[in-house]
Design a protein around this nucleic acid. Structure first.
Lengths: 155, 155
DNA sequence: TACCGGTAGTTGATACATCATCTATCCGGT
DNA sequence: ACCGGATAGATGATGTATCAACTACCGGTA
């Protein structure tokens, strides 16, 4: 079924390609900068930031996964790698025998506190300061709208 | 040098987070849909589309890499996997003994021709048709501007 | 108490991304 | 003709993402 207007117009395609291209390039760039400046992957950074946002730097796997929008399995693997490097630790949960906490270690705090300001500089240079405040706001708004759309979309 | 105003304002941070969050979610979603509907990864799709855009469906590794903005190594690995599945093939290059071509196979054409329309429907539903034409254009414009900024940025 | 469906997190397999290194070839200068 | 730097692409190692089992525990019910 469906016969009509599936493909994108030239204009639509141009916008769509620019958007996708930007994402790919920006992700690579941010990841590379983070790695070069601080020895962290984007995944590491995201976890550590989330842990500093939470009292005690300690949170249930489940809640952390929800907070950053990850699958449990992905988080479990990522945390396992980070534990090996000593930036986070795992703690059993007394109230729920199945559960566990992820806790940021002192070393983890050092790492993220050193990394974050450098990362912000990059983000400013590449994005935030590269746009007018209005355009940045517009970008944020459009992003939010698309996020809602995705959340309301079935499948 | 530089002591001040490194972090983002609340407003800036909100925009930035929405933006990043959108990208992460959208990429996952598009990848999952592609996989479910057509058995392709985003990487597969990108390669196959690029190959259909080129006369004979045949292009030098180097040129393909440049076209889609990939590292050579990444392309080499990806193509190797795709060769195993029979959607593309590798051909030696007569003019340059070091070089090689990637060619889309008939099977590859079938696959991409079946996959593309479905993918477009998803892209329309989640993005293109979820915005007004003006907003989509704005998004494309901002993306282009940021891409330029990244290209002009050292390091 | 014993069962049982649901939940929390783990694990293994496979695909993908990135980096460093390697091989073969090309091309320019002598 | 030869040498040496540069280029095309391949390869192996490591980290990351996703999916499908799997384990252990919870909580309610008979």
């Amino acid at each position: 079924m469906s016969n009509d207007v599936p493909w994108l117009s030239a204009e639509e395609e141009r916008s769509w390609r620019a958007f996708i291209h930007l994402y790919q390039k920006l992700t690579r760039r941010l990841g590379a900068d983070l790695q070069a400046q601080s020895g962290l992957s984007g995944a590491d950074f995201q976890i550590l930031v989330a842990l500093t946002d939470v009292p005690g730097g300690r949170v249930r796997f489940q809640d952390l996964a929800e907070e950053i929008g990850w699958e449990r399995s992905r988080l479990s693997h990522q945390v396992a790698r980070m534990i090996k490097r000593g930036v986070v630790a795992r703690e059993e949960c007394a109230e729920d025998g199945r559960g566990a906490f992820v806790v940021i270690t002192p070393q983890g705090r050092e790492v993220i506190e050193a990394a974050a300001p450098k990362h912000v500089v990059t983000v400013r240079r590449l994005v935030v300061d590269a746009l007018s405040p209005e355009d940045l706001a517009t970008l944020g708004e459009i992003s939010s709208r698309l996020l809602e759309q995705m959340d309301s979309d079935p499948r």
